Amino acid sequence: MPGAVVIGAGPGIGGSVARRFAREGLPVALISRSAGTLANVAETVSSFGVPVVSLTADSTDETALRAALDAASDELGLPDVVVYNAAIIQPDTPGQLPARAQLDAWAVNVVGALTAAAHIAPAMARRRSGSFIITGGMPEPKPQYVSLSLGKAGVRTLVTLLDQTYGPSGVHVASVTVAGAVAPGTAFDPDDIAEHYWRLHSQPRRQWQREVLHSGLNVPAGEAATGGTAPHAGGDQTTGITGTGRPDASTEPTAYGVIAELLGHWKRAFDDHRTADLVSLFTDDALFQGISPRLMVGPAEVAGYYDNVAEGTVATVEVLRANTLCDGIVGGFADVTFTARTGETFPIRLSVVAQRFEGTWLIRQYQAAAR
Rank of each mutant, 00 (worst) to 15 (best):
G216H: 06
F188M: 09
V5Y: 05
V108T: 12
L69C: 03
I241C: 08
D61T: 08
T165L: 14
L148W: 13
H273W: 06
R321I: 06
A286L: 10
V108R: 07
V352I: 11
A153V: 07
E75F: 15
D284P: 09
H265Y: 10
I133Y: 06
D189G: 07
F270Y: 15
F21A: 01
V111C: 01
G25T: 13
V53N: 03
S215T: 10
V178L: 02
G12D: 10
L148R: 07
G10M: 11
G151L: 08
T93M: 14
S351V: 08
S129A: 08
G235E: 09
R268E: 05
A4L: 14
T177G: 01
I193D: 00
A174N: 02
G36R: 14
I291V: 14
A269T: 01
S351G: 11
A276N: 05
Y256G: 02
P220T: 04
W198N: 03
A181Y: 14
V50I: 10
S131D: 10
D74A: 14
A118S: 09
A334D: 00
T316A: 12
T360R: 15
A179H: 05
P184G: 03
P79T: 02
E24N: 08
A260Q: 12
T93S: 13
G343Q: 09
A269G: 00
L150A: 13
A107M: 14
A22T: 07
R371D: 12
M296W: 07
E24C: 08
V279R: 06
F282N: 07
V83W: 02
R33A: 04
G312Y: 04
A87Y: 07
A183T: 09
Q144K: 11
A67D: 09
G243V: 14
A29L: 00
D248R: 07
G228V: 02
L97K: 15
W106A: 14
R341N: 08
A322C: 06
S147M: 12
I348P: 05
T115H: 11
G227Q: 04
P247Y: 03
L263C: 07
A101N: 10
H265Q: 11
T244E: 14
T177F: 00
L325W: 04
A224I: 15
I193Y: 07
M296A: 11
D104F: 08
V212E: 08
R23C: 08
V309R: 08
T44F: 02
E261S: 11
R66S: 07
T135F: 03
L26N: 06
R100I: 15
Q365I: 05
E43H: 11
G290H: 01
E301C: 03
R274K: 15
